[in-house]
Amino acid sequence: MSKEKEADRRDFLADGVRVASVMSVGVLGGFLAGRRGQAGETRWQIDPDKCVGCGNCATYCVLDESAVKCVQCFDMCGFCNRCTGYYTLDGLDSRDTAAEDLLCPTEAIIRTFVEGKAGQNFYEYTIDTDACIGCALCVKGCALMNGSLYLQVMHDRCVNCNECAIAVACPSDAFVNPSSDEPYRLKQVAYGVIRQKAGQGDEAAQTLIDQVQASE
């Protein structure tokens, strides 16, 4: 008789703790879900104005192929023939397309002739995103001139780790956490011209502006 009574008490206590635990877990979930309403989820991104092009992005990403890729801001590009983002400093003189004269290790920069004007040839430099490894060699080269090439975390690839391995390794603290609605950044100087293009009905510019956090 007394044994049964003991067992009952044991069950009662276990039941009580269980109910309390389920309730507190529910309260915790509700609390966190409620707090969520105050702000959106965030993603990792590189602030291109802080990036120094160290090359860590290519190697520190947990993905085999880094989620960081180069982006060309054509509205900042001089379309130069002697492009310091495309050629090595030696290659600038010869300007042939031999591998040792090109900065990009994966031939991810495509150079196409656009127009000859006033005795000068202008070339357009497009990034082949699938080939780009985010090594930032071109970003560093371009920084000698206009700085139109910049790195961005591509959000079709990024797995949005809790602790971005590149952000930990970043020497210039360039990683920021924009909301997942506007997960990209632009160089501050390019923001105005892209917005102006969007205002003139350029769809690509409008799409880009919608993905970029409004400049403060």
Binding site: D75, V114, E115, A204, L208
Partner: peptide, 14 residues
């Protein structure tokens, strides 16, 4: 350019 509008690079959606 005479007949080459300056393009805008696109970035992928989340």
């Amino acid at each position: 350019f005479a007949d080459h509008p300056i393009p805008t690079a696109s970035v992928p959606e989340v």
